[in-house]
């Protein structure tokens, strides 16, 4: 079996344990120990989930982008498995971030949804990721699947900042950004649990990425082995 996979198997547990530790500490500090916000009250506590989820979804997409460039350069199927895993995780984290954002938005903004720059960019991100994952199911040749998926991921990554800027300009044109979190300074006893949660979520992502990459790799390996045996069987039958 692949050397990289064996190394992953040896070290992945540390990431899982680290993630569990950071998330437990972060959750305790965020949900129980930290004081409620002056303006938002207890509602602010969803921030400790929402913001790390949003960070991690961007981290996942950055990993997907890096992996896609790497794949096109080296054409290593294992890297493609990692991209596939990162895309799926990025989609999950993005949807959760949008979902928690909506829950947060209802009490604070008094609406489930608003076409705020960040929300819109994340929606576009989610659409790109769904397109990416759909594309992967529509191609039969695994080599071509990996290649095309990498192209889509790279184009999407380059597009994201442009989408963000254009939506932001568009928003400032149509209404002042009263909802923006920007400018709200976060005091340090809110910041520390937030950082803990962000690190924990990133570690959780890394752990899930390693497990999922392994899973995809082993599934492909299994298919290949099965195919080889099946082929040998047909071959021997044809000979006799």
């Amino acid at each position: 079996m692949n050397k990289v996979i064996r190394r992953i198997q040896r070290y992945q547990g540390w990431f899982g344990a680290g993630a569990a530790g950071c998330l437990l500490v972060g959750l305790y500090l965020g949900l129980i120990a930290s004081p409620p916000d002056y303006y938002q009250g207890e509602v602010v506590r969803i921030m400790y989930i929402h913001v790390p989820l949003a960070h991690t979804s961007l981290l996942a997409y950055t990993v997907l982008f890096g992996g896609s460039v790497w794949y096109l350069w080296k054409r290593d199927p294992l890297v493609d498995n990692m991209c596939h895993a990162a895309a799926g995780l990025s989609a999950v984290f993005t949807s959760l971030a949008l979902f928690t954002g909506m829950i947060w938005g209802k009490p604070t903004w008094n609406t489930w949804w608003t076409w705020d720059a960040r929300l819109t960019s994340f929606t576009v991100l989610l659409l790109i990721l769904i397109g990416y994952l759909m594309l992967r199911t529509f191609i039969d040749d695994p080599e071509r699947e990996a290649r095309f998926a990498a192209v889509v991921a790279i184009i999407g990554f380059v597009d994201l900042p442009i989408v963000h800027f254009s939506v932001e300009w568009w928003r400032t044109l149509h209404q002042p950004q009263s909802f923006s979190l920007r400018g709200v300074s976060i005091s340090s006893d809110l910041l520390f649990p937030l950082i803990m949660m962000s690190i924990g979520m990133s570690l959780l992502f890394t752990y899930m990425l390693l497990v999922r990459t392994q899973m995809l790799y082993l599934t492909n390996l299994l298919h290949a082995k099965k195919g080889r045996l099946l082929g040998q069987f047909h071959l021997s039958k044809a000979d006799s």
Binding site: D140, D141, P142, A224, G227, L230
Partner: peptide, 10 residues
Amino acid sequence: KTYGYYQVLR
């Protein structure tokens, strides 16, 4: 050449 588990060329 392999397509999934279908081995076309060996």
